[in-house]
Simulated assay, not measured.
Amino acid sequence: MNDKTDSQQSDAPTVAGGLIIPDLSAITTMQNDNMQKMTAAVQAASQGLQDIVAAQRTTLQQTIGNLQKSLNSSVGTAKIGQDATPDIQPEIDNLNLTVDNLSKAADTLTSSTSKSFDAINKSMEQSLATIEQVAQKFSSGG
């Protein structure tokens, strides 16, 4: 067959033993596209998680460093007077800051995950619509 006939036949249903087989290339293309979208969504979620872990590591390192400095200062102050009580308010403020930063990281993870699932869901809905179109063509004979 010539090229023109081949390209015309690839778009039309194929007859095999009296059974009409529709062109399923659209489904194959859509599934490949879905796989690419899912891969991108997983990569985005993974990058978001890596960013969160890095931010948490930095936050905890800063927290520990600040806590050590503050404790050293409080102990020095307490040694000056026998009845002096160390001021631990800076430690409390530091820990509150840590909690706030970790909460922001959790929000980032939630947002990243939601975006990934939305992308996958949209892609799957498009695939199902394409499959439905092919099924309708198949059931109508072309």
Rank of each mutant, 00 (worst) to 15 (best):
103 S>M: 14
129 A>N: 13
95 L>C: 03
112 S>C: 10
133 Q>L: 02
106 A>E: 03
123 S>I: 01
133 Q>P: 00
103 S>V: 03
100 D>L: 04
105 A>V: 02
110 T>S: 10
105 A>F: 02
97 L>T: 04
133 Q>R: 09
107 D>V: 08
117 F>Y: 10
123 S>R: 00
130 T>V: 11
99 V>Q: 12
107 D>Q: 08
119 A>C: 09
104 K>N: 08
130 T>G: 01
96 N>C: 08
95 L>G: 01
101 N>D: 12
101 N>G: 09
119 A>K: 00
113 T>Q: 09
93 D>Q: 07
127 S>W: 02
126 Q>V: 05
119 A>I: 05
116 S>N: 08
129 A>W: 00
119 A>S: 15
131 I>F: 06
125 E>R: 10
99 V>H: 10
122 K>R: 05
132 E>I: 04
117 F>I: 10
99 V>F: 13
113 T>K: 14
122 K>P: 02
94 N>Q: 08
112 S>Y: 08
102 L>W: 08
110 T>H: 08
117 F>A: 11
93 D>V: 01
102 L>Y: 11
117 F>P: 00
127 S>C: 06
111 S>M: 06
126 Q>T: 11
123 S>L: 02
99 V>E: 09
133 Q>D: 09
95 L>V: 06
120 I>Q: 08
102 L>R: 01
132 E>Q: 15
133 Q>V: 02
97 L>I: 04
119 A>G: 12
115 K>L: 10
121 N>L: 11
125 E>Q: 12
103 S>W: 08
105 A>L: 01
101 N>Y: 01
106 A>Q: 10
132 E>P: 00
111 S>C: 05
